[in-house]
Write a protein that binds this DNA or RNA. Structure first.
Lengths: 230, 230
DNA sequence: TAGATTGTTAATCGATTAACAATC
DNA sequence: TAGATTGTTAATCGATTAACAATC
């Protein structure tokens, strides 16, 4: 599992990072069906993607394959896991125990992908003290001490948009080095902190625009062609 | 609100579509504080983005500004809304009334962004009949008829990964033209159908990789070396 | 050996960034 | 007028796609 890729960790395209989980999932399914070897061409065919792109992405992990054969399936799965860090558990704290936060606390699979949400925080007195999927919601003001004691590096934000920036600041000052932001807000973080936005309105914009383009709605907005309402 | 952009709707970079909501939100906040005019430079400064990029994105909407002045704030907000189609309501159906599905049903703001989830479906007998945020969960088998009757074009998938593809197929055969997929699965849709994936594991991969790169963890996985970055 | 697939290098494509003229 | 900002064109950058040699 050692490889010459320790310094290849730079220059990994965002797009490749986002595609690797797709391969990973598909490969895991194959594992169950007892396949031993897999080629990029196989994967591309199954997923309906470009074979060259699949190969480029997989090369990022540093695994070396055999021409004519491909990669041993189990090895490939482990190389991807290892490359993404999914085999090295990281603790995380959650701020915001609303419906989305609760849903996130219930995602058991995060654990097998190296992400352990070990505590939840909120400011709402009604929520504090509640147990959600085995974790008791604590007052937000306890977050910094908790983070420092647990050496937690990841903060998950599922608060309202209004609270997102101040919660971010609180996390960052407590030593959090990566923010996974689910609040619909553009938050600012220092250079040293990684920010991953999960903003539904970004995709809603994309979806909405593409649908209208495809359905032939003009953006003039004066006349709408479909019944429902306008 | 009319413009020469009716045929400019092609060739809009995905990245621009994802940034416009950021501007939109910031502009709406400005509206509340009574600002009348805004320039791209202003927006860029507030959001910490590149001014040229902001201008390029805003030009996509087709609005024309005044040199030295910028754009009338209210107009700009409306041009963005109109460009994204957020001022033209679209009905949607949801499949999967688990914790995530329920959270989505509770997002009131979708409505003001043109997205109306008017019905929810599930196969779980325990969920069917439940009311979630004012909508009664119906048996999944009722979905096709509902979609046809309501002329619904958007399907939201919040099922398990295992069910995602078959639910997609059901939706597509009923006439759905855009799928907003929250299930962690790579689903296939016909050419004519728009697919917007909201896969948490895509961002988890990116977050995880970047955090480890920054903290100096080698991907060999044998020893973890972070003492507080390198 | 023959041939499919890897690994790598080159070409293309598209988005971002920079430069600059037009304009209020 | 002077100067900031728009609108537009050009240059740069990076990712995707194509081509091809190496290899099992």
């Amino acid at each position: 599992m050692r490889g010459p890729n320790s310094n290849l960790r730079r220059d990994v395209p965002e797009a490749s990072l986002r595609r690797l989980p797709i391969y990973y999932r598909s490969l895991q399914e194959m594992l169950l069906s007892g396949v031993a070897q897999v080629s990029c061409a196989d994967l591309a065919r199954i997923l309906g993607l470009d074979p060259t792109q699949v190969r480029k992405d997989i090369e990022m992990t540093g695994i070396v394959g055999k021409p004519r054969v491909g990669y041993p399936l189990g090895d490939l799965v482990r190389w991807i896991e290892n490359f993404l860090g999914w085999n090295r558990p990281k603790t995380a704290v959650l701020a915001g125990a609303g419906s989305l936060g609760s849903a996130l606390l219930g995602y058991e699979k995060f654990r097998s992908h190296g992400m352990l949400i070990i505590a939840a925080f909120d400011i709402d007195p009604d929520k504090i003290g509640q147990r959600i999927h085995g974790r008791e919601v604590q007052p937000l003001m306890f977050l910094p001490d908790f983070v420092r004691q647990a050496h937690t590096l990841v903060g998950v934000i599922a608060t309202s948009a209004a609270a997102a920036q101040s919660v971010t600041d609180l996390m960052v000052s407590a030593g959090i080095r990566a923010i996974w932001n689910f609040a619909p807000a553009h938050i600012q973080v220092p250079e040293r902190v990684i920010l991953q936005n999960e903003d539904l309105y970004h995709s809603l914009a994309s979806l909405s625009f593409k649908l209208e383009s495809k359905m032939g709605v003009t953006p003039t907005g004066n006349g709408i062609s479909y019944a429902e309402d306008n």
